[in-house]
């Protein structure tokens, strides 16, 4: 299990930095910037140069990646009920990802933005729960049919 977690953490670091970089390039282009910056100007301005801002951003992206890849183990390695899996995964990603996203300058720290983010987060997790539950019920039905045929 610890070996598994280490492998997941490494995958998280690599994919986190990769996705963070792609997103930062996309948002920089969308904002009409002419030179690369790793995050919003307000974030970069806190550093004495864009190199330091990029290094700190990359570390935060890596940590975000680790949060998600370790969080996914909840779904692949445990025997928990779907509700427990969904709730634990929600708590891990909400309290793991949100502070990192705020530190990386992705959110202005105000109540409306946070509330909006939280509501979207909850809706997504309700959907995950429903999709998992419906999927499991379909599989159970199919198994029950096959059990009846074979007996």
């Amino acid at each position: 299990m610890i070996k598994r977690m280490c492998i997941q953490a490494v995958i998280g670091i690599v994919s986190g930095v990769f996705i963070g970089f792609i997103l930062s390039v996309v948002f920089a282009s969308l904002n009409g910037a002419t030179s690369y910056s790793p995050s919003a100007p307000a974030f970069v301005d806190k550093f004495n140069g864009s190199l330091n801002a990029t290094i700190v951003s990359a570390i935060l992206w890596a940590l975000m990646g680790v949060v998600f890849t370790l969080g996914s183990l909840v779904f692949t390695e445990t025997d928990w009920s779907i509700v427990k899996m969904t709730v634990v995964h929600l708590l891990i990603t909400y309290f793991g990802f949100l502070p990192l996203a705020i530190l990386a300058g992705w959110f202005p720290l105000n109540f409306v933005e946070l509330a909006f983010f939280t509501i979207i987060f909850l809706i997504v997790y309700v959907l995950i729960y429903l999709i998992c539950l419906i999927g499991a019920r379909k599989q159970a039905e199919s198994i029950n049919r096959k059990l009846k045929q074979s007996q």
């Binding site: 025997d79 009920s81 509700v83």
Partner: peptide, 26 residues
């Protein structure tokens, strides 16, 4: 096999006993 609304997979045996499984083994 039965899936409860909280998403526990309950397996009913013919002798009346039961046990539980998880989604990833289905």
């Amino acid at each position: 096999f039965e899936v409860s609304s909280t998403g526990i997979i309950i397996i009913h045996f013919k002798n009346g006993t039961q046990t539980s499984s998880s989604r990833r083994y289905l």
